[in-house]
Design a protein around this nucleic acid. Structure first.
Lengths: 124, 124
DNA sequence: TACTTTTATACAAGTACTTACCCCAAAGTA
DNA sequence: TACTTTGGGGTAAGTACTTGTATAAAAGTA
């Protein structure tokens, strides 16, 4: 997960901004190219690690695991492992993750509308 | 604005994901640590470049200009320059930027609630 | 003349994020 | 024995994002 240099200006800004700006706080949790997609695939119900991997073919395993871990730390996703061999691990969204869905939907709606206007021009 | 390597896998993923995932599309527009803050300061009315700079002391001029440019390209912010010396430049939000405000608010509300729960624990 | 103000631009260096590739355990199966 | 399956871990390299510092133009002012 590549260590972060605590003392960097960048990191300091990130920390302090996240505290004073709730929007940045949210973006730190769902930013990056893969997290919204993972959350989307999990929103239809729990999925196994390998199902996610198949559902998102472009993602590398490294990225998938890394983001799943971060989403766990942020309490948006729950990991359930059964101690069998081969392993059986299931991921699902938590209640906090569920409450986030309307926000993601609102973003999606704006995004779709914006894309459309950019293609067709503003409607009369 | 540091050139982007068109052929990189990363850039390819970014492009294709933005097309198929409207949430990522939105995040590409308002992601980064400074854009939401700039939009917030502009939401209360137009501001001059130097006013923004004073309002956000931690930001470097480089970052401020860069993000303002990107916001212009994304049609979220409007730049109005009067041809005088010294320059007089005003920034304001466009209609697309205004329509984005409710989304930002929804994010802020979720963020505040999430922060609170994380501090006080879940309420009964 | 020298210095200030405003709105930037250019270049280099530092830091973070992503990708690519190789490795592992333990049980089941051919 | 050799190979497959599942859910990962580790390291290095490539790419993007942020910061830091220097510089500019043209008018006004000390």
């Amino acid at each position: 997960m590549t260590a972060i240099k605590e003392s960097s200006t960048r990191n300091f800004n990130k920390q302090t901004t996240a505290i004073s700006c709730p929007v940045t706080y949210v973006m730190n949790k769902i930013g990056g190219h893969w997290k919204p997609i993972i959350l989307y695939h999990l929103s239809n119900g729990p999925k196994r690690y390998s199902e996610l991997k198949r559902a998102i073919p472009q993602i590398t395993e490294k990225m998938l695991i890394q983001h799943l871990k971060q989403l766990q730390e942020d309490d948006l996703v729950l990991r359930t492992a059964e101690p069998v061999v081969p392993p059986f691990v299931t991921y699902s969204v938590t209640s906090a993750g569920t409450k986030l869905q309307p926000v993601l939907n609102a973003m999606a709606i704006w995004g779709l509308e914006d894309m459309e206007q950019r293609i067709n021009g503003p409607k009369k």
